[in-house]
């Protein structure tokens, strides 16, 4: 299978690989996927007091498309509010990276990772369950 240039570019120069302190109250951690399925993504976001994502880090076990999808979303979520980040859809990721049909699940995982990281942050701040309403 041939990879798109964008997948190759992210795969070869992944952005924001790393770890944030998961116990820091301003950090939300999302861990999605399963080792048995061949994909696990961990997305971490650090959120400012006024509700913006100021930093994002990922680590991914998975194929090149999974790594590229996670790398891409770390770039996309930075600077966004939680609501804006939640509006990122897997189809946007798939389109940007020109993922073939068998790799769509990688982009689904990336969307799930954003949701899971935000849910974790909200849980820490007593606003869970996630994905409804905001603090504004």
């Amino acid at each position: 299978m041939a990879y798109s240039d964008k997948v190759l570019e992210h795969y070869e120069n992944p952005r924001n690989v790393g770890t944030l302190d998961k116990n820091d109250p301003s950090v939300g951690t999302g861990l999605v996927g399963a080792p048995a399925c061949g994909d696990v993504m961990r997305l971490q976001i650090k959120i400012t007091d006024d509700g913006r994502i100021e930093d994002a880090k990922f680590k991914t076990f998975g194929c090149g498309s999974a790594i590229a999808s996670s790398s891409l979303v770390t770039e996309w979520v930075k600077g966004k509010t939680l609501d804006q980040a939640l509006s990122i859809k897997n189809t946007d990721v798939a389109k940007e990276l020109a993922l073939p049909p068998v790799k769509i699940h990688c982009s689904v995982l990336a969307e799930d990772a954003i949701k899971a990281a935000i849910a974790d942050y909200k849980r820490k701040h007593g606003t869970a369950p996630a994905a409804t309403g905001t603090e504004k």
Partner: peptide, 17 residues
């Protein structure tokens, strides 16, 4: 990273099958 931290991956409840 988790394995090196001593997390037993078999005891983690993974989100997705």
């Amino acid at each position: 990273e988790m394995a090196k931290e001593g997390v037993d991956l078999k005891n983690v409840t993974w989100a997705q099958a």
